[in-house]
Every structure is written in structure tokens, then in C-alpha cells.
Design a protein around this nucleic acid. Structure first.
Length: 466
RNA sequence: CGGGAUGUAGCGCAGCUUGGUUAGCGCGCCACGUUCGGGACGUGGAGGCCCCGGGUUCAAAUCCCGGCAUCCCGACCA
């Protein structure tokens, strides 16, 4: 590149240098926004909106409804669940003054909403006919982390948080896994084309206040793991703390079993780090805000470009015309490469004279001409092929970075290390933590997800993590 | 909170050691011209509380003292 730009954060060596310019900008000026907060530029937000749309559709398909709860939470709410308050205390932003006066009880800016929603649930739920209560919220939350990293760990971030209440423990467990597989794995793997290992968190790593936490762990191209989403079964822990009770069919008062689960803007970082190359982002077509950019090479070809884009839109493709002929062809071509549009179609006078256009793939070096009347039928196949090929690429990289070891002290370097959980154990886990490694998750020998308290024959995935 | 570094134009930086013209360079931005199917070139132009506050000096971006902020490596974490 003629004018490479410096990436301010994160500073990881392998992090794409173009990241900040294309996707986001973190402004941490002296008198500006709070440290570690980020400003997401429109293209980055468009990617997030695509993820939102895919996620939201699946969440609703499993019967949940969206709601919105307060951003400010009374401090006393957090204190009701002992583990929860202990887990989050260090990273809370607290409001002590409002309306020009000191508040009688400080308010916490939500780090997550189990407590406010739990409080609401305790009033909304009376009898078993009110169950299950399936809620989801799209919101921003604040966690005052010590070391923010662009997208991966920011002080304020956007996410989706689901909160449900059920009569029976089994139902809560079923819900926890349903979200893990039908919503999270489906979107992350099939839309974002990011391979993930699904497993159970160790007690050390589980959510503060949960009975069991399930996770989806991705591996970035620098060999560090990234937790892409979590789903928790709280059992009756929060129900007891917030008085979420119902009267069952026999007339007995029972505690509910609750769940919560979330995926944040962190996945945008994971997407970038999974598929980006030296020339910029490579977006899987399913998530790309613009799947096909139709680039009008000259002013006189704008009309044809627009007709082609309309035809593609008609075929259900997200196509956009780039008619900025006041900017050079090369500049525009490079810009779309940086942004990661999966397919670029160049419409120029020479192409049109031959009744064709030039079709360029972003994911690999391929540029060929296609007859104008075949474009609308060929492009959907091409997009599907690119989607598949990006996932295969990422899978291959992930597998190359995964090794089996027998002992904890053999764990050294980048990538995933698989080790029998019996051989490692909680002492081994603590020893690894000293060296900067963590157990990302536990899986069964056949790779499936273990039941909550089943500790037999598990394999621990260990890695350094973001 | 430990260890290391840095604050100079929108962005990236040089200048500081050894104080001294009007504080410079690249990118970006604006105008005109030539280009323009792979980040064009030429000419001209706009844009600076040199982080803040003190001090030393005839003179401070530069030296001294004190703040503040940010970044990197740890601890903590979606």
C-alpha cells in the first residue's frame, strides 16, 4: 500500500494494520469519551447490523420477544447475588451524583442486566401459566476493564442479552443449549464463517452467579482464543436472590430456573481477525452489508451499472453501485477491497462493447469476464462458494493451530492445546493461569458438549485468550 | 497497581542531545491543469496554545521542576 496507516489498538503484531481505518475508530481524547470506549464508523456498524439481523431473527424464531430495561441499576440489586457482585465489582462504573445532588444510593451503569431483569421478573411471574418467560434485549453495557482492546474488549459495548425464566431445571438447561446451538453456533459458523469450539466453562471461568456456563471459543490467526459468546444456566441462584417464584399446578410456591446468554460487538473483532488479510477485510457474503459492488468505470457506464445492480437486487443479492467517477478507478477498487465486499463487478466501456462485465473475487485472486445476461444467475453461486471457502480456510488454520498434549507443562506457544481434564485438573488450571494460559472450555472425548456436572473423560481446550 | 515508552497540523512523524531565521516532512484536504480499467502527476494554497502549569535565560518545542493524558508488557475480563 502506498500510504499504510498505523493501527492504534489493539497492538498485537498480527492484527491487520488497516483494521482501525476500515472498521472502527477509538477516540480517547483528553476531554473526549471515557477511556476504552469506541466510535464505530458506518461500515463497521453496518456489519454489526447484519449480525444483529441474523441473530435477532433466530432468537425470535425460538419464541423470544425483545424488551428494554434501565441502564442504571441500584447498587443494592447487584449485592443480592453474592458471586455476581463479587465478579463484577471491580469493573463497575458508578453514578454517585445526579440532578445536582448526591444520590442516597449510588447507581451502577449496567455491566449486564440479570439483576434489573430479575427484579422485573419477580413481579411479572406469578403462576406456572406465566412460564416460560423468554426475553431478549439489545443494549449497550459498561465494564471498566483495565486494558481495553478495540472491539475485543471495550469499556462500553453493544450486545444482545437474553434472559429467561422456566419452571423446571431441565427446561432451563434445554434453553441454554438451544441458544448455544440454534442461535449462536448457527450465526457464528454459518453467517460469520468463523469455526468455534463449543464447550462448558470450568468453575474458575464460569459466569459470576451461574450454575453452568457454555461457551463458543474461536481461534484468531495469531493463535489466541476469543470467547465469541456464552450461554448460562443459573439454576435457581438468581431466582432465590430476586424472589422469582411461581405457584405450580399443585398450588405450591416454587423458585424459577433462569438462564442468560449474550453475544457482543466483540464478534466483529473476531470476524476481522478470522478472515482479514494483508489487503484488508474479507467478508463472508452472508454477513457482508454489500455483497456485490457494481463499479461504474466511466460516467457513460453508470446507467448499465445501475441496471445490473437492480437486476442483482431482484435476485435477492445485496448489490450497490459505486458511481463515484470523480475518484480514480484504482482508489475505489482498493477501498472496496479494504472494506471486504466479497464480489466486485467492473462495468466499463470495453466490457460493455463485448456484452460482458468483469467479475472480481475478494477472497482470492480471480478476475474474469462474464456475459452480461449470465451475471444474475452466476453470482449467487459464486457467493455461496466464497462463503464455503472462507469457512474452510479458517477451519484449516484453526486445525493447524490445535495440538494434543498429555501434561500441562507441555502447553507452550500459540494455538489450542487439547489435554485430558483428568490430567490437568483445577490445580493444573491454576498453574496454567500463572503462565497466561486458561482453560477455554471442556468438551467430551467425542467433541460434544458435556452435561453440567458430568466430569468424566473430558478434554480441556487451553490457550492464551483475548 | 508494578515495568517500559510517548505527547509537535485531521493522521503518521522529524526537530530536542549542543536553546537562536518565519517550526519542518509524508499522507490527507482545497483550487487549477494534465491524467484516470488498479491507491496518478505538476503548480499553487489552507491548516500549529509544539499536552498543561511553573522556573532558568536576552531568547525555550528544545534545559529544570511539578502535573495531566495516552500507548505498550503484566494482573482483571464478553
Amino acid at each position: 500500500m502506498a500510504n499504510p496507516k498505523r493501527v492504534l489498538t489493539p497492538q498485537s503484531e498480527d492484527f491487520p494494520r488497516w483494521y482501525q481505518d476500515v472498521v472502527a475508530k477509538a477516540e480517547m481524547a483528553e476531554n473526549g469519551p471515557a477511556r476504552g470506549t469506541m466510535i464505530i464508523k458506518p461500515w463497521g456498524y453496518a456489519i454489526w447490523e447484519r449480525i444483529q439481523a441474523e441473530m435477532d431473527a433466530r432468537i425470535k424464531a425460538t419464541g423470544h420477544v425483545n424488551a428494554y430495561f434501565p441502564m442504571f441499576i441500584p447498587t443494592s440489586f447487584l449485592q443480592r447475588e453474592a458471586e455476581h457482585v463479587e465478579g463484577f465489582s471491580p469493573e463497575l462504573a458508578v453514578v454517585t451524583h445526579a440532578g445536582g445532588e448526591e444520590l442516597a444510593e449510588p447507581l451502577v451503569v449496567r455491566p449486564t442486566s440479570e439483576t434489573v431483569i430479575g427484579d422485573a421478573m419477580s413481579r411479572w411471574i406469578q403462576g406456572y401459566r406465566d412460564l416460560p418467560l423468554l426475553l431478549n434485549q439489545w443494549a449497550n453495557v459498561v465494564r471498566w476493564e483495565l486494558r481495553p482492546r478495540l472491539f475485543l474488549r471495550t469499556t462500553e459495548f453493544l450486545w444482545q442479552e437474553g434472559h429467561t425464566a422456566h419452571a423446571a431445571w431441565d427446561e432451563a438447561q434445554e434453553e441454554t443449549l438451544k441458544i448455544l446451538f440454534q442461535v449462536y453456533e448457527d450465526v457464528i459458523r454459518n453467517v460469520l464463517a468463523v469455526p468455534v469450539v463449543l464447550g462448558r466453562k470450568t468453575d474458575r471461568e464460569k459466569f459470576a452467579g451461574a450454575e453452568v456456563t457454555y461457551t463458543l471459543e474461536g481461534l484468531m490467526r495469531d493463535g489466541k482464543a476469543l470467547q465469541m459468546g456464552t450461554s448460562h444456566n443459573m439454576g435457581t441462584n438468581f431466582a432465590k436472590a430476586f424472589g422469582i417464584q411461581y405457584t405450580d399446578a399443585e398450588g405450591k410456591v416454587q423458585f424459577c430456573n433462569t438462564t442468560s446468554w449474550g453475544v457482543s460487538t466483540r464478534v466483529v473483532g473476531g470476524l476481522v481477525m478470522s478472515h482479514g488479510d494483508d489487503d484488508g477485510l474479507r467478508l463472508p457474503p452472508e454477513v457482508a452489508p454489500v455483497q456485490v459492488v457494481v463499479l461504474a468505470v466511466k460516467e457513460e457506464t453508470i446507467g448499465d451499472a445501475e441496471r445490473l445492480a437492480a437486476e442483482l437486487n431482484g435476485a435477492g443479492i445485496r448489490a450497490k453501485v459505486d458511481d463515484r467517477i470523480n475518484q480514480s478507478f484504482g482508489r475505489r477498487a482498493v477501498e472496496w477491497e479494504l472494506k471486504g465486499a466479497p464480489v466486485r463487478i467492473e462495468v466499463g466501456p470495453r466490457d460493455l462493447a463485448n456484452g460482458e462485465v468483469t467479475v472480481v473475487r475478494r477472497d482470492e485472486d480471480d478476475k474474469h469476464t462474464v456475459a452480461l445476461d449470465l451475471v444474475a444467475t452466476q453470482v449467487p453461486e459464486l457467493l455461496a462458494h466464497i462463503q464455503e471457502s472462507l469457512l474452510e480456510d479458517a477451519l484449516r488454520r484453526r486445525d493447524e493451530f490445535t495440538r494434543d498434549v498429555d501434561k500441562g507443562d507441555e502447553i507452550d506457544g500459540a494455538g489450542f492445546f487439547r489435554i485430558p481434564w483428568d490430567a490437568l485438573g483445577e490445580d493444573g488450571e491454576a498453574a496454567l493461569a500463572e503462565r497466561g494460559y486458561s482453560v477455554r472450555c471442556l468438551v467430551k472425548e467425542d467433541g460434544s458438549v458435556p452435561a453440567p456436572h458430568d466430569d468424566r473423560n473430558l478434554v480441556a481446550y487451553c490457550a492464551k485468550a483475548y
